[in-house]
Design a protein around this nucleic acid. Structure first.
Length: 865
RNA sequence: GCGGGCGUGGCGGAACUGGCAGACGCACUGGAUUUAGGUUCCAGCGAUGAAAAUCGUGGGGGUUCAAAUCCCCCCGCCCGCACCA
């Protein structure tokens, strides 16, 4: 019995596709375009099975759309700047460029071995000056447009990576990559003004109807729009020597942000963030306050800490004047729960209608003044206990607001504040500008020069790219660019005097924020050819992990808008369709000492339990995402060597819905390998002689063959629908049903060969996007001269895709009692008659007429006895 | 705490818009072929039951001729955000 020889065939077809240039993309206005993109990898060393799952889905979409006649762009490249390269240099003495280049070579070889249909002529690596020079130009354009700026600010400092992190890169108070507790530092940094697009980025989420709901929700929450008001409380200072107050927005006022201006008459204190400038200034003269602030800093911001931390405050000598009633004064606190980064860094506390304020007020014995009355409550008796009242209601105890609804009171207070000049309605966002400076070597140099007399001077465009120097050392901590003997010393482009280069490099999310545009014309002398980009963009189907739901996907949306503003392209949204695939998981194993074991170190004992190589018992742990630390990794080489690329690809598509996590099992892939061989036998040793390709199918067929033909055409319809909807596992199941039916071919019947050929050809073409090498080999074995890659998608005959005869379930009182076969769309009366004629039905009715009969055409007859 | 998702055989999962629950596969069981293992082929495979039948989609209620699917309550798991004023 012949076995499918993937070793020979996979290499052969890869060579043929390559020689024919099957997957080279060219702009062609006459054809509908389709841009398929998988999130490009960081060249960390080797591909893992998770990468391969991602690219297998992308390749399926690319080949499927190509077969349907779309002009497909499907490129691949390398997100090549990043810390692991630099860490490798520090640890192993290998230059980041060499390390990265080696990894790219390895991973490119692995991708080619998988037979993915990429246009390799468009391959890019972001660490090449031919790539990053363009983002240096973009940065200069952003600078000119005011979309990039420099400011001193408190930043997130990752002590393990010795660099700054963006807010998006801090997870639970730790660096997203290093896991180190993030510290606060005051540094001068470059920022991109993503907040200029807060509203646009939020609004446009609604247009992204081919994005997963949860990604849109995550971005919505991240942008965090809140409508409210800024309110200024005057400062009444009983202190004999008032500290200077210059620079606080308005002279002598504390500005707060609130979403509940309707509760302003319930104010019983004002609280400042420990990092508020006024708090800092007060601390200069008050050692106890300085100590309080230092304590708040020590506590950190991690989830667990916040959960446990109680609300604490420090009462300053200041009093704030109520903006609507100058006779009212409230104390000013510095409080640990007020964030400097949100709103204005100061709040007013209304304990009756905010739980945090209530906790705080109870602790410090501050008044609790209810000002919103729940519907139906008695104003004389209404009091707040341990729970703040945060629902809707009617204003009371509130002067001119009394009797108004919450919404109306908000409007009325806003108007009054604006009249008095004590505040205005406004919108606050959680989103903050994107800090892009990183104190690292292996990134794109920021193209500016610091001149002692001219200040910040952009590098002239003619001097781009600012290339990374290659002769750097990694033996000392800190940024190698900063201590390079000559690189940073330059003449000021403005005055010609001595000046220094910016030694920070860009956050590596900078590169991935526009690479999808570069792919449209990967060798263009400018960033991208506008006509090519406007032909290919937006990306029709983007595929990647959900871990970038906020980071990369939000930055790219911002970048596209910023480039539009700078005149690069007329485009708002880069990714029209997004699919987030699940992870690949694998069983974990631990020995008695709790050490993790590689899967190949675990064997089965005679009794079936898991043991290690010396026979000691091993605990099989839970399924986890494959990771080096848990050792539950599966090497791609071994799989491809044993089963071939196609088998691995089909397994990754078939076992779980693509959005869900997939468990890697050896028995699962063995099952696919058996299936591959069954398919190959089906075409290489057909049960009957096949007519030549293109031969006509007899117009009338025996019933068994007619049914088989109908199944073929129904399969084409169902698989097409499943692929459109990303239900790859179901599509595989349908094709397997078809091949099962073809194996049961009634070979003796007249016309069996013609129907078998039709079925095998359909199965081959349907499998083409999933197992492209095997499909080509099958196509050839079926006598075709051309390629599946160029053959087009099979078309179903709509008449054959519908059954002429349908099986209808017959229920009595909702319970299945039998089935009847009827012509499709038979009259309800006929169905009812046939159902009542069933002996089971007659027996259950015992001669009485049914009370009611429900007939759903082509589906069910329910007899109600 | 807030937001979202999920819960179906031993396992991964099917079930269009409320209409035959368990497709397809993995594992397993029995048999055939084979020197043996593997492969291949045939049969079985939700539970109880000899059978007829009954029960069965996390639990409890409800709507309906009919519920995995819709509604209410509860339980569990996963993901995201989190002192956001």
């Amino acid at each position: 019995m012949s076995r499918y020889n993937f070793r020979e065939t996979e290499a052969k077809w890869q060579r043929i596709w390559d020689e024919r240039g099957c997957f080279a993309a060219r702009e062609d206005a006459a054809r509908p375009k389709y841009y398929v993109l998988e999130m490009f990898p960081y060249p960390s060393g080797k591909l893992h099975v998770g990468h391969v799952r991602n690219y297998t889905m992308g390749d399926l979409v690319a080949r499927y759309r190509r077969a349907q006649g779309y002009n497909v762009l499907h490129p691949m490249g390398w997100d090549a700047f990043g810390l692991p390269a630099e860490n490798a240099a520090i640890a192993g003495g290998i230059h980041p460029a060499v390390w990265t280049g080696d990894n790219i070579a390895t991973m490119r070889g692995q991708l080619k071995r998988m037979g993915f249909a990429y246009d390799w002529a468009r391959e890019i690596a972001t660490c090449h000056p031919e790539y990053y020079r363009h983002e240096q130009k973009m940065f200069l354009d952003f600078l000119a447009e005011g979309l990039a700026y420099r400011k001193e600010s408190w930043v997130n400092w990752d002590p393990a990576e010795n660099t700054v992190l963006a807010n998006e890169q801090v997870i639970d108070g730790r660096g997203w990559r290093s896991g180190a507790i993030v510290e606060r530092r005051l540094l001068s940094q470059w920022f991109l003004r993503i907040t200029a697009f807060s509203d646009e980025l939020l609004e446009a989420l609604q247009t992204l109807d081919r994005w997963p709901e949860r990604v849109r929700l995550m971005q919505e929450k991240w942008i965090g729009r809140s409508e409210g008001a800024r309110v200024r409380f005057g400062i009444a200072d009983p202190h004999p020597n008032p500290p200077p107050l210059a620079g606080e927005g308005r002279e002598g006022a504390i500005e707060v942000f609130t979403t509940r201006p309707d509760t302003l008459y319930g104010a019983s204190f004002v609280a400042l963030s420990p990092h508020h400038p006024l708090a800092q200034r007060l601390a200069d003269e008050d050692p106890a306050l300085a100590e309080f602030i230092a304590e708040c800093d020590r506590l950190g911001t991690s989830e667990a800490v916040i959960e446990a931390a109680e609300k604490r405050g420090y009462r300053t000598p200041l009093e704030a004047v109520h903006p609507l009633d100058p006779t009212r004064r409230v104390p000013v606190y510095v409080a640990n729960f007020v964030l400097m980064e949100y709103g204005t860094g100061a709040i007013f506390g209304c304990p009756a209608h905010d739980q945090r304020d209530l906790d705080f007020a109870r602790k410090y014995r501050l008044p609790v003044i209810p000002v919103i009355l729940p519907p139906g409550a008695d104003p004389a008796n209404f009091a707040i206990g341990d729970t703040a009242y945060v629902e809707d209601g009617t204003a009371f105890n509130s002067d001119f607001l009394d009797g108004l609804s919450v919404a109306a009171a908000k409007r009325a207070v806003g108007a009054r504040l604006e009249e008095l000049g004590h505040g205005e309605r406004t919108i606050a966002y959680r989103l903050r500008d994107w800090g892009v400076s990183r104190q690292r070597y292996w990134g794109c140099p920021i193209p500016v020069i610091h001149c002692p007399s001219c200040g910040i001077v952009p590098v002239p465009e003619s001097d781009l790219p600012v290339k990374l120097p290659e002769d750097v050392t990694f033996d000392l901590p800190g940024n190698p660019l900063d201590r390079h003997p000559t690189w940073k010393h330059v003449a000021c482009p403005a005055c010609g005097g001595k000046a220094t280069r910016e030694t920070d490099t860009f956050d590596t999310f900078f590169e991935s924020s526009w690479y999808f545009l570069r792919f449209c014309s990967a060798r263009a002398p400018n960033a991208f050819d506008r006509a090519a980009a406007e032909y290919w963009m937006p990306v029709d189907q983007y595929i990647g992990g959900v871990e970038h739901a906020v980071l990369h996907l939000l930055y790219s949306r911002f970048f596209t808008r910023a480039l539009k503003q700078c005149g690069y392209i007329d485009l708002d949204e880069p990714f029209a369709g997004l699919f987030t695939q699940g992870m690949v998981c694998h069983q974990t194993y631990q020995n008695a000492e709790g050490e993790w074991l590689f899967p190949e170190e675990v064997a089965a004992a005679p009794d079936g339990s898991a043991v290690d190589q010396s026979g000691r018992p091993v605990t099989a742990g839970r399924l986890e995402k494959m990771s080096k630390s848990k050792k539950n990794v599966v090497g791609l080489e071994a799989i491809v060597e044993t089963y071939g690329a196609d088998t691995a690809r089909l397994y990754l598509l078939s076992d779980s819905p693509p959005e869900r996590d997939l468990e890697w099992t050896d028995s699962g892939i063995e099952g696919i390998w058996r299936y591959v061989n069954r398919l190959w036998r089906l075409v290489s040793e057909p049960a009957v002689l096949l007519p030549p390709p293109g031969a006509a199918i007899p117009p009338t067929l025996p019933p068994a063959l007619d049914a088989l033909r109908r199944r073929i055409h129904k399969t084409i319809v169902a698989v097409t629908d499943d692929l459109d909807k990303f239900r790859f596992n179901r599509a595989v199941a349908r094709i397997r049903e078809l091949t099962n039916a073809l194996e049961d071919l009634p070979a003796a019947e007249n016309g069996a060969g013609a129907v078998l050929r039709e079925g095998l050809e359909a199965a081959t073409l349907l499998l083409g996007p999933m197992m492209p090498h095997l499909a080509e080999e099958m196509w050839q074995a079926l006598g075709h001269k051309g390629l599946v890659a160029e053959a087009g998608w099979p078309k179903a005959d709509p008449d054959l895709a519908r059954d002429e005869q349908v099986t209808i379930a017959v229920q009595i009182n909702g319970k299945l009692r039998g089935t009847i076969d009827l012509p499709r769309d038979a009259a309800a009366v006929a169905a009812e008659e046939a159902a009542l004629a069933l002996p089971q039905v007659a027996r259950m009715l015992e001669g009485r007429p049914p009370r009611k009969v429900v007939v759903v055409p082509n589906r069910i007859v329910n007899v109600v006895a």
